[in-house]
Each structure stands twice: as structure tokens, then as C-alpha cells.
Design a protein around this nucleic acid. Structure first.
Lengths: 214, 214
DNA sequence: ATAATATAAGTGAGTGCTCACTCACTTGTT
DNA sequence: AACAAGTGAGTGAGCACTCACTTATATTAT
């Protein structure tokens, strides 16, 4: 049974910065409100109240409301894909290629856990990508540079070995991502229900193996 | 090559109401702006300017900005699922069950075309479901009552015949929906690129057949 | 057929409120 | 004493919405 440790993770991220205690309070309050109500429906007086600071404090470090949003999302955007790529390199592909099932299991479980760990930020990110084309471009670039490459290498390996269907990488990634997201959306939209990431991983991989394996 | 006929469809919907010309202008302008900028980032002066009416006119019929949003989304929420169910009954299941592939092809193509036809409203709906729990509940209820039943019947038929895997209906629906949505998201997020719905349908069905068929 | 009257639709200046943000000042830290 | 962090009243802008008035349309009387 996976435990929702988004608070712990965000707290860890905050601890790594040299912000004052009150500035960290501002970020925590902002994330909560942006996640619950949306960026636009959250006012800076709201943030000040929840953080227990003055309105001027809200602007001291981040200059604008938009700056607060960037401070919250930048770590997610910059870390989600590099982290995936790095973990891939060290944990999954560094030694000889594992079986396809092991590869998919590792990938899927890793991403489900990431969704569990970052669900508030992902909820904020989700609403932002609808109208923030700069952010969409940023995510797309990071994805192509840091994630597509390693997975392309892995899938090419299995394809060249005749283990999986001879489809374009983009197409296969689309199916993997959309199946993971269909479980991930439940985590993001209904945080009151804990999702068994191990059981979910098993179901996802079972379906993907059937869909992709020769 | 599918043509984006959302304007034609929305125009048809408007023609079916007894609203005045200026009121219809208000709705058209509202949909465009809500879709492009989001509900919160759209102001009622914005709507008045684009519709070419006075600010008071914006409120004449719909009373509040929120009322305009409801007027736009209600037809989508009330029609998307009933339409799916009705079309299923008359076009797909009325005669004897077709082959699994024909069934999936019909379903997938129908839903992709619906996404194409309603992409602006779906874009608005997407942002609303993030924070409007009433709307989410409404969609969920409509889905369970009008869509789940017919698809459950169909999938039970194929399962009982030993044609597909012995998985729960909810699980299989999740995979169908998420795969369709992975193509549909491209339609919604990047309307400047037309999506070949027939080719997409073929790819989707190929993957789903592999994933579900025994 | 035309004029008068009633009703509906539309108008846009104005309202009260809240917003994002500022900055002179106070408090806390080094 | 100097500097940094925090404060909160105040600012200008723009919001959603109102409403007294104007214009357009429909109905009725002549």
C-alpha cells in the first residue's frame, strides 16, 4: 500500500533551499491553495492568511504571484524528466538489458510513485499546461531530451531482438504513458483514495505486455 | 482527413435555441475566449468586445458569468454520454453483435470524431473538472448510467464467448478510454494540426485488439 | 394601413469590491 | 550600527454586476 508522502517530499525540497521559515510557509500555502482552488482562484491575501504572514511578505522573495507559481513548478519540470532519465541510466539500463517485463515494471512503478509523491504539483501543472504554451514547450523539450532518448534506446533493443512489435517509438511511448496516466489521474483527482501502486503496476504491465510483445 | 467542424456544430446547436442574434453572439464569443484563455482569465468586458455588444447585454440572458459557462457546458455534458449510448444502441448493437474489431473500430472512430467536433468545449470542460466537483460528479453519473451499461453488455458478450481476456469491465474501459484520449489530447491541445481520425482509429484498435483479445 | 401603446432587448456609465502589488516604516538578526 | 526580513495601509486598475434609460419589436386600436 503506497503512502502519500507528497508533504514529506516537498518539505525535503524546501529544506534544500536557503529560504527563511516564513518564505517556506508562503510556498507551502501557495502549493496547497493552487492545488485545491487553482492559480487564478487563489488570491495573494489568501496565501498570506494561510501562511500566517503579511501580504508584503508574499512578495518579498518571489516578486509576483506568477513568480511563486514558477518557484513551485520549476523543480517539478526540471526534475521529473532528468530524474527519470538518471534513474533509468543507473537503475534499469546500466547493466545488461533486463527482460521486457522487468523493464516495464520498473518504469511503470517508478512513474506511479512519482505521481503519488508529486500529486499536488502535478495537479497545478495540469491546469497550467492548458494555457501556458511556454510551459508546454518546456515540458516537451525536457521530455524529448531526457526521457525519449533512453526509452528509445531500450525499445529499439527489444524491437531489434524481435521481442516487441515493429512500431515507431513515439507510438509505443504514447501507449505506455496513457495507460500509466489513466491510473495516475485517479491519484491526482481523488487523493482521498489511496492507490495500490504495486497492484496497479502489475495490471498496467500485463496489458502493455499483451499489447506490445510479439 | 477529418475536418474540424466544431464551428458548424456549435452553430447548429445555437440555431436550435430561441435566443436572439446578439445572445448567440455572446455565447460564441464566450466559448472562444473560455477555450483560448480559460474561464478565469476571460472578463465580461472581453466577451462584450468580441461579441460586439454592450456589457449589460452579456448579463441579460444568463444573469452571471458562471451562467454563461453552464449554458456552454450543459449541452456537452448532457449530450456526450446520452449521444454515445443512443448511437451505440442504434448503430452498433441493435443488430447482432459485430466482430470485436468492428465494435472497437466503430466506438473509437465515433469518439475521436466527437472530440474533433467538440474540442473547444472539451478544452473548457477539461479545466473545469479540475476544480468543479459538482461537474465531475455529473459527468461520472452520466457516464455510469448511459455509457458503462451498453459497453458492459458488449464486453460481457465478447468475454462470455471467450474472445477477450477475463478482466473486469472497468479495467478494460479504462484502457480503451485512455488510449483514445491519448490521441484526443493531441486534438484538443494542438488544434492547428489536423489529426487523421481514420488512421488514428486503425492504430488504436490494433493496439487494443492485441491487448484485449485472447 | 397607420399610429399608439406595451413589451422586450439592448445599452453603458457607474458601483462596490477585490485584486496584485508597493513602499515607508518597524522589527529582527548579524 | 548596519543590514535583512517582515509588515500592513494604501494605490491604481479592473473585475462582476446593476439599473435607469434608450431603442427595437410586437400588439392593439383606429
Amino acid at each position: 500500500m503506497a503512502i502519500n508522502n507528497v508533504e514529506a517530499l516537498f518539505a525535503e525540497t524546501l529544506n534544500e533551499t536557503d529560504l527563511t521559515g516564513k518564505q517556506k510557509d508562503v510556498l507551502r500555502a501557495s502549493l496547497s491553495l493552487f492545488s485545491e482552488k487553482g492559480f487564478s482562484q487563489t488570491s495573494t491575501p489568501d496565501i498570506a492568511r494561510l501562511a500566517g504572514v503579511s501580504e508584503g511578505t508574499v512578495y518579498k522573495q518571489f516578486k509576483t504571484k506568477e513568480g511563486i507559481l514558477r518557484a513551485i513548478l520549476a523543480p517539478v519540470v526540471q526534475n521529473v524528466f532528468p530524474k527519470a532519465a538518471d534513474e533509468f541510466a543507473t537503475d534499469v539500463l546500466e547493466v545488461s538489458y533486463p527482460s521486457l517485463e522487468t523493464f516495464l515494471t520498473s518504469l511503470v512503478e517508478n512513474r506511479l510513485n512519482f505521481i503519488v509523491d508529486n500529486q499536488k504539483q502535478l495537479r497545478v501543472l495540469l491546469q497550467e499546461v492548458l494555457f501556458n504554451e511556454g510551459l508546454v514547450q518546456q515540458i516537451r523539450t525536457a521530455f524529448m531530451e531526457r526521457v525519449y532518448g533512453p526509452i528509445d534506446s531500450a525499445l529499439s533493443h527489444y524491437r531489434d531482438n524481435g521481442e516487441i512489435v515493429n512500431w515507431q517509438t513515439g507510438r509505443m511511448i504514447r501507449y505506455v504513458v496513457s495507460t500509466v496516466v489513466s491510473y495516475g489521474i485517479q491519484i491526482i483527482m481523488m487523493p482521498e483514495f489511496t492507490v495500490d501502486t504495486k497492484a496497479s503496476t502489475k495490471e498496467i504491465v500485463e496489458f502493455l505486455m499483451r499489447g506490445l510483445k510479439v
